[in-house]
Structures are given as structure tokens and as C-alpha cells.
Nucleic acid binder design. Structure first.
Lengths: 110, 110
DNA sequence: AATATACTTAAGTACATGCTTAACCAATCG
DNA sequence: CGATTGGTTAAGCATGTACTTAAGTATATT
């Protein structure tokens, strides 16, 4: 893949990893520092920071450093984008079922 | 990653690729054969089949072969699983905001 | 000032992913 | 039957991903 990733690519890719989802899960309960995010994960700090970078690149998480502590938080609007894609698919699907229903009803009548 | 992927991993991973999302998008408008799925994609048939395998492994798509044609369709329940994960995060977040609101209201009163 | 804390940077490695081409097989059409 | 259509299998290759360890840099704490 020639690194022409769309926001949606980056978003779903970011959510495809259980460690990163655990970080998002933690952040949905409120902001946290990098080491707080790292605590439940069985890996080195640099690894966690790399996951964090993936999350930030996807837009799902933002962070800022104050003193020596980097505090992270969810960007809900970004998560919404991914959710919306799925909602759109479902709507298309439901419209299709409606049309199918109409068609069958017509058959019944005719 | 040591191939201990959960359903959610596979689902998000499957949706992280634009070709695969295009296939899901097509299937949300109704069933399709492998070559119908391939038509809009600028890649070889085997590549498309590999994407299809990823989608099937994730549970998002099911397929069956009749004669020499393999017909594919979305498994909506699976897509729902991914959507639910995101809804759960949002609910947690909203509960948190509610508690914060209550707290601030208390401060106001006291 | 010395030490500990909270990251950060860099480099390396093993494995996964997204393709490709070539060859193959089994239905169906003429 | 022989050619075509629709898909399948296998092998290979370039790039990406998920870690690791080692060393470094600020910012507190004592």
C-alpha cells in the first residue's frame, strides 16, 4: 500500500489493535498520562508511545505535554466518523430491504 | 502480533483497507459475485479473493458457491459488533460528562 | 547537587500484509 | 468436444507493523 491512507483507513487501522483499543477504552473514562495508559499493558514504554502515535495520527486521540507529563484524551468527533461509516452502510441496507418489502407487497396485490 | 486475534481485531482490521471497504459498500446494496466485487478495483482477481478472505475471516461477509459463481453477502450482525464497541465507548464518555455536570452543579449550589 | 521520574529517540528484528504472476480446475457456451 | 468464463492455488516479493533494547533529555524531588 503506497501510504495514501485516508482518515477512515487510519481510524479503523488504529482500532484494529487490542492494546490501542484498551488505551481508547481507558481514555473514554477520562484523560490519562502516557504511563497510566501503559500500566495495564505488558510491553515497554516505547511500544506504548508508538501505539499512541498511531492513535494520534488517526485523530482518535490528542495529547499535550505539561512539565514532564504528557496528558492524552479522546477526540470524540473522530470516533464518530468511523461510527458514521457503519451507520451509512446500515442505512443503505435498510433502504434496500424496504424496497424489497415494497416489491413483495406489490407481488402479493397483483 | 502473535496471531491471537479477537473478532473485534479482525473486524476493524478488515475495515481498515479502502478496497475492502469498497467491497462492503457494494455488498450493502445487495449480494454480488466475486468478479462484480472486483470490477471497480484496480487489481488482479487473486488480490480481490484475498481481500474477500479477510472479510470472511472477520465475519463481515459470507459467501457460497453455486455452479462456478461465488455469491457474497454482508453479515450485518458482525458489523453491529464493531458499531457496538464504539457506542459503548461513547456511553462511558457520556456518563462521565453527566457525573462532571452533577459535580459542577453541586459546586454551584454549595 | 544528586537522584528519580516521565518520557523520547534511534536502531534493529521478526512477522504480517497487499500485492503480483503463472498455472490450474471446473462449469457452461457454441 | 473445444473454448470461454469464473474462480482457485501457489509462490514470491516489497513494504508495513509491533515490538525490543540501549541511550538520551528534560523536569521534578530530596
Amino acid at each position: 500500500m503506497l501510504n495514501q491512507s485516508t482518515p477512515l483507513d487510519l481510524m479503523f487501522q488504529a482500532l484494529a489493535d487490542p492494546s490501542r483499543r484498551s488505551m481508547v477504552e481507558r481514555l473514554s473514562r477520562g484523560p490519562a498520562s502516557v504511563s497510566e495508559l501503559a500500566k495495564p499493558l505488558a510491553m515497554s514504554l516505547p511500544a506504548v508511545v508508538q501505539h499512541l502515535q498511531v492513535l494520534e495520527a488517526s485523530g482518535l486521540v490528542r495529547s499535550a505535554k505539561v512539565g514532564r507529563v504528557r496528558t492524552c484524551q479522546i477526540d470524540w468527533a473522530a470516533l464518530q466518523t468511523a461510527e458514521d461509516w457503519m451507520l451509512d452502510r446500515r442505512k443503505t441496507w435498510e433502504r434496500r430491504l424496504d424496497r424489497l418489502g415494497d416489491f413483495l407487497a406489490e407481488q402479493e396485490k397483483g
